[in-house]
Nucleic acid binder design. Sequence first.
DNA 1: GTCAGTGCAAACCCTTTGCAGAAAG
DNA 2: CTTTCTGCAAAGGGTTTGCACTGAC
Lengths: 138, 138
Amino acid sequence: MLSTQDVADRLKAHGILPTQQRLLIARTLFSRDQHLSADQVMHCVNDDKDHVSKATVYNTLGLFASKGLVREVIVDPTRVFYDPNTSNHHHFYNVDTGELRDIEASELAIESLPELPEGTVSEGVDVIIRLRNATETH
Amino acid sequence: MLSTQDVADRLKAHGILPTQQRLLIARTLFSRDQHLSADQVMHCVNDDKDHVSKATVYNTLGLFASKGLVREVIVDPTRVFYDPNTSNHHHFYNVDTGELRDIEASELAIESLPELPEGTVSEGVDVIIRLRNATETH
DNA sequence: GTCAGTGCAAACCCTTTGCAGAAAG
DNA sequence: CTTTCTGCAAAGGGTTTGCACTGAC
């Protein structure tokens, strides 16, 4: 596991005050080198003798994401949108408005697919281009 | 709006029994030509004098998706995973196990980006390759 | 001592479940 | 008539909120 000092430096470099709980959460994320949901982080952190409350875990992860320390990835299949267009196509997603807009498959080409992990087959490829309104200050 | 008959034929073509509620939901989806969440569909349908229960809306949308009448798109920003890797990269997502795995940016190239909608700037591009276990019957 | 961070519990929202009643063929 | 679909209400799971307490500087 990374040393507490390393992690603390990393937090500071992103303008985050390194408190005990934040260090614990950051070490959990970085040492596992996995993608974890907020809920999973909570369970991992609280498996050990240490304890961090639910609210703090959610707050902290949101803070990390907004400071660019971690990246949010949207892949939860329990929250979906339904698209009447079943053809092979992709999407613009406006993070400011929540608006979703189609991209025709012909407008975007993926050059090379990586090798799939052993024992798996591809179900499909989703490309989501995240947009922000140019005028919004942020 | 599409005629009831058109929609009924479409349902039958996908092996779906066209009941009153299913027709209502299908017409809502297809006439709007938008991406709607289950919740939004429920509100749209129930804005008019007609009424379809919550359970039926969820069941019906799940049925439509499993029959290929509509497509599920995962873009809900309220359910996210946190990724300690902030570099530009993409993901394998195993729908059977829920496992998420990195794809290095160098392994996958996008040939051509479409023009962005006016007044927006790109925040980033997410590529998610959905996988299924080859051995799973389904 | 001040201000930011944390903990707790309750509220909240969306989704799923179980079963009785209704509708379709 | 039989099978499938629908409605209701309640449970479930994950996320957010409000406010008092604690800890960092």
